[in-house]
Design a protein around this nucleic acid. Structure first.
Length: 424
RNA sequence: GAGGGAAUAGCUCAGUUGGCUAGAGCGCCAGAUUGUGGCUCUGGAGGUCGGGGGUUCAAAUCCCCUUUCUCUCCCCA
């Protein structure tokens, strides 16, 4: 079996080196920012019942129709999660969080799976960090959630995020259904000008025609009424307050009537963060309100809002912007000359690690010079140098590795405190 | 599902109308410096030229097949 026979399968990737650091920053940033906003971590299984995704995401969506990894190892059909909301809400209901009687704020992070054709910023196993705020219809919550996404990007050093915003109304007769009917009435005479997929969308999900990128379809779409001009009173008021809330926080946004979003469960507010560095897949995150989903999955009517952010897409933006991709430097590198000193150094390294100081040493039998080079390459701030002479006297050399740094000989017992003096 | 581009050293890539033992930079290892890193210099290791078949005196180079990566459409994070 040669190395070329064993590869990561199509659309999956390994993250190492700078990618590994970016990936870790994306994950760490999520914990830091979301926790700061009062969200609690939830970890749900990577696979769930197929039915859960079909019901929550929508039978007629591309995800459910053709992109899910579904299999039947036993008697039950299971699917690798294509997104995070369905599982989070399932857990919310299963553990009766709705009976606690207060707003539930959850965040998650992890791999998702969609069997699409891979391309830039789109992979079959990809990662999302996301949040769900379940139990409040307060428009201020929408704005906080949107603001939190921006705070997250800032934490990762991603600037130049654009926020697109829309409201697609609710399921009340006078709201989205009325708008959909109006839309269809206006589109119908132009059906022959629309692409094939839009023709099938016309029957199944007319709103989706709005965000078709086909130029002919866009011509037709241009003259169509916007959803935000056809909201019921409640949705209109909600949308106005979301916009006010964003303006009050100084967050810029573009109201975009063509932002519809693909998943069935959205209602009222929908939004998308985009970034110019990403190319064709310019959405770096997106979300919205889904007031009907909890009920759809068998719970009480419960309003909710959330978002998901694509980690790989954030990583592309980080790379393009040259944002933080340096490894945390090693504090101490220990150098032992000869077998006895090497063994003694191993003990010193262990003590440093117990003190919470990052420390490493050579395990390849390298020469002294080579060990020094290794210490330098690993960015060690301090080198501990132990030779037979020092060992015999109970001493060790502590060398400051910075340019022009000093080296002093100290008692082995004092080594850790001496090292600490040199560390930031 | 459909359409472009690409595959040569660990990495980024040269390689002419087919023609000596397939190169460079970076990285790696070592020496210059017997126990002191970075900078410099010198040397070294490292390739089934993605795989298979064909044309030819001769193929990294031309042709066919195949695999994979990549980008685009669709859709989404």
């Amino acid at each position: 079996m040669s190395k070329k026979d064993i590869r990561a399968i199509e659309g999956t990737r390994d993250y190492l080196g700078e990618d590994g650091i970016r990936f870790e920053k994306a994950m760490d940033g999520a914990r830091e920012i979301f926790t700061r906003f009062g969200f609690e971590k939830i970890a749900t299984p990577v696979f769930e019942s197929t039915d859960l995704f079909a019901r929550s995401i929508g039978e007629a969506t591309d995800i459910v129709e053709k992109e899910m990894y579904t299999f039947k190892p036993g008697s039950e059909m299971i699917t690798l999660r294509p997104e995070g909301t369905a599982g989070a809400i399932r857990a919310y209901l299963q553990h009766n969080l709705h009976k606690q009687g207060s707003l539930t704020k959850l965040w998650y992070a992890g791999p998702m799976f969609r069997r699409e054709r891979p391309q830039k910023g789109r992979y079959r196993q990809f990662h999302q960090v996301g949040i769900e705020a379940v139990g409040s219809s307060d428009p201020l919550l929408d704005t906080e959630v949107i603001a939190m996404g921006i705070a997250y990007y800032e934490r990762l050093g991603i600037t130049g995020i654009r926020l697109r915003l829309n409201s697609i109304g609710c399921s009340k007769d006078e709201c989205r259904p009325a708008y959909r009917a109006k839309l269809r009435a206006e589109i119908e005479p132009n059906l022959d000008k629309l692409c094939k997929t839009c023709n099938s969308r016309f029957e199944r999900n007319a709103l989706r025609i709005l965000d078709c990128k086909n130029p002919h379809c866009q011509e037709v779409v241009k003259g169509l009424p916007a959803s935000y001009d056809n909201l019921c009173e409640e949705c209109e008021d909600h949308f106005a307050k979301v916009k006010e809330g964003l303006a009050a926080q100084g967050i810029e946004f573009d109201v975009d009537a063509t932002l519809v979003r693909g998943l069935d469960y959205y209602s009222k507010t929908v939004f998308e963060y985009t970034h110019g560095a990403l190319g064709a897949q310019d959405a770096i995150g997106g979300g919205g309100r889904y007031d009907g989903l909890v009920e759809e999955l068998g719970g009480p009517a419960t309003p909710a809002v959330g978002f998901a952010i694509g980690v790989e897409r954030a990583m592309i933006a980080m790379e393009a912007l040259g944002a933080c991709c340096c490894a945390a430097p090693l504090s101490v590198f220990g150098i032992g000359l000869g077998e006895d000193c090497h063994k003694a150094m191993s003990g010193m390294i262990t003590r440093l690690r117990r003190e919470g100081i990052s420390a490493d040493m050579d395990y390849e039998g390298r020469s002294f010079k080579s060990q020094m080079r290794l210490a330098n390459r690993k960015g060690a701030q301090v080198a501990l140098i132990l030779g037979d002479n020092e060992l015999a006297e109970g001493k060790v050399n502590v060398k400051d590795m910075r340019e022009g740094g000093e080296q002093l000989s100290v008692n082995i017992a004092d080594a850790i405190s001496e090292v600490k003096k040199l560390l930031p």
